[in-house]
């Protein structure tokens, strides 16, 4: 019963993705009345980054200039999260006392 359920759910997923792959519909086309992925309605922010990124942060890689310059707080948070994770693992796994060896 459980195996049957797993097989049925996998089949439904595969059928769904195959349907989307064969018949993509409006995917990737410019939006007319409704919104489509890749063509957002408001593009002011994207246009600003794309046109000013090379001038203000003097780097060719727009992604890096967003991650480290325009949205540096985000990266600071990521680095802090990594630091906190390492601190947690170290506090769990380190040797507690010298005489445990």
């Amino acid at each position: 019963m459980r195996k049957l359920l797993i097989i049925a759910s996998i089949a439904i997923f595969i059928a769904f993705f195959l349907y989307v792959a064969i018949n993509p519909g409006d995917f990737g086309k410019p939006a007319g009345r409704h919104l489509v992925f890749g063509y957002p309605k408001y593009t002011d922010m994207d246009d600003y980054f794309i046109t000013h990124g090379q001038i203000f942060s003097a780097a060719n890689n727009i992604v890096t200039s967003i991650v480290f310059d325009f949205r540096g707080y985000d990266t600071l948070g990521e680095a802090t999260v990594l630091f906190a994770a390492v601190m947690g693992i170290a506090s769990v796994l380190r040797k507690l006392r010298r005489d445990e060896e």
């Binding site: 942060s57 780097a59 200039s65 480290f68 310059d69 540096g72």
Partner: peptide, 8 residues
Amino acid sequence: TGGVLPVM
């Protein structure tokens, strides 16, 4: 190029 980006 890049300013502080390579440093960071």
